[in-house]
Design a protein around this nucleic acid. Structure first.
Lengths: 315, 315
DNA sequence: TTTTCGACGCAGCAATCGACGCAACTCGTA
DNA sequence: TACGAGTTGCGTCGATTGCTGCGTCGAAAA
């Protein structure tokens, strides 16, 4: 007597899709209520709902909707307990559209992640990212999965002035996943690398990616986070005396070269100053500042600092 | 309270509905006298009356009758805590001079945490928090450790215009710790609770505390994060149709009651709207909004909604 | 006699229906 | 590199369905 027969709206809400999409799935793929009189309202039984949830799960794994629907339609009443071991399914069927997030040729996993993001499904988002991180490491996951999806969301965001909640949600999930990596890889030795965002800079995700990559490589670091005023940065450098400082700037507005100059004017100036992020202009950087082009380069530079320090202390 | 049996007419007059409606509610939703012989007159006990009053309150607040009835039927004793006076924050601090962080009488662990924060020692910060969470749970750790320390840092921050980097670092560590709690407690079922910050509101830590507490209690939720524009919030509510929405506002500047009004104006409005945080003014809240005074109360209110099913149809 | 019961019906309104179309992503091709 | 073809999610529109509160009526209870 409890939950027999859900209305279309209730099912749509539960799945996180629009009501119209449910109707489309019914008429295009035959995924509807098992008993439905045309013209009358749809009433979804638990079995129908289970079929739709298979559809949703497969699409969030990056399977093309048409194929996912074929799977879901002939689904046995007993659903196989998850874990079928995905891994870049060969799902290169025509795929597109609607209110989707563009991920280019970033692969089916990225497509699935984008879909989960659109549904605000933080559980799936988190799981997808964690699996990718475990399988491919921080750098590859960042370049091949997270950056494309985040860029796609940002693109849509500026174009439609919407999707802000999606952007925040994914950012949080990514941030949590990176933190999880850092926690899973305890580092040894004192942190000699300081990571900080530029003044007023709100985007710290790429810096967190670097932090996670460092943790993965066993390098300890110190992360200050977003929106660090120059005075606070100088103060932190003075207090902790790092060998290398990475200063992230996402947009030109936050990329004030004076910050770098102030960094180099500190009494015990760091060995290496990295100006990371697309905000910095190569021609306006003070002498002695290095500008890595991507995450991998920043990582190798930072690792090099660690190694040189080890060498100097050892010999 | 033995034989306070009210007749149908009396109850109808008291509730302000027609007698016929009472009969309809009985046969359609099962909201009638607990003991009733068909054909005989209905005799409503005080308990029956209380159930009907819940029904009436929810329907007049705009909740779909079928859903309101379900809520009223299986609501054992969820009495909304009426207006507990807001106590002024006892801000009498007098502890440690120099560059220490005032933590009041929060105990030695808090002092240790504050010291680690001053050293920017994220490893120790994270470990301290994790241990406290494991030992005392989310609510106690938040109220007894994290909130005092964060408040102390904020106090010093506004007083000395420094310590911003400390504040960010600790925030990040707390955030990570909460995320870790959430990941360690997998929840089941679709999320029926939506957590969101008010528009322009940047502080999301207390909301993350609530999220972690919910996860600890096995309740699934959806967290939108900081700085959620009204349009995005409404959009998310429309899409996912949560049973309860928690809107956090830290300062008065971000506590625009219009946001709550917009929340309640959504087609299928949530059963419960919580205005959380010190920003909200009790006298300016729209009717039907509950204002929890602390984390524990917000938690218990949210947990109460856990079992509520939606489905707004059937007959 | 007065009030309530159960059954039936009706009008208002929100949700949904089916049809159509739009926008946008991917991919193959030039 | 640009462009058309194939897909796909979803907004819109006028019509319909179905839920909801309540009035009415003959019979039964108080």
């Amino acid at each position: 007597m409890a939950d027999e027969a859900l209305s279309a709206g209730a099912v749509a809400r539960r799945l996180g899709v629009a009501v119209t999409t449910l109707r489309t799935w019914h008429q295009r793929y035959g995924l509807g209520p098992s008993e439905h009189v045309p013209g009358h309202h749809r009433r979804y039984t638990p079995a129908d709902l289970a079929r739709l949830e298979i559809m949703r799960r497969l699409t969030t794994e990056g399977i093309a909707p048409a194929e996912a629907a074929r799977w879901a339609r002939q689904a046995p009443a007993v659903l196989p307990p998850e874990r079928v071991g995905l891994k870049a399914g060969a799902a290169s069927v025509r795929d597109g559209g609607g209110t989707a997030i563009p991920v280019g040729r970033a692969g089916p996993v990225a497509r699935g992640l984008a879909r989960a993001a659109m549904r605000l499904d933080s559980v799936t988002i988190g799981r997808t990212i964690a699996e990718a991180l475990a399988a491919n490491g921080v750098v590859a996951t960042w370049e091949g999965l997270l950056r494309p999806v985040l860029a796609g969301i940002g693109e849509r965001h500026v174009a439609t002035a919407g999707l802000i909640e999606v952007e925040h949600l994914v950012s949080r999930c990514v941030s949590e996943a990176f933190a999880s990596v850092a926690r899973a890889h305890p580092t040894v030795g004192p942190p000699r690398i300081l990571l900080s965002c530029a003044d007023e800079e709100q985007h710290s995700l790429p810096l967190e990616a670097l932090a996670a990559a460092l943790a993965e490589a066993g390098v300890s670091y110190r992360m200050l986070g977003a929106r660090v005023p120059v005075a606070a940065l100088v103060e932190a450098v003075n207090r902790t005396g790092p060998a290398a400082v990475v200063l992230w700037s996402h947009t030109r507005a936050t990329a004030d070269p004076h910050q770098l100059a102030a960094l180099l004017a500190v009494p015990r100036r760091p060995l290496l100053a990295l100006a990371a992020g697309p905000g910095w202009r190569a021609d306006s950087l003070p002498a002695g500042v290095v500008r890595p082009v991507d995450l991998a380069e920043a990582l190798s530079l930072a690792v090099a600092v660690r190694d040189s320090l080890d060498q100097s202390t050892a010999g």
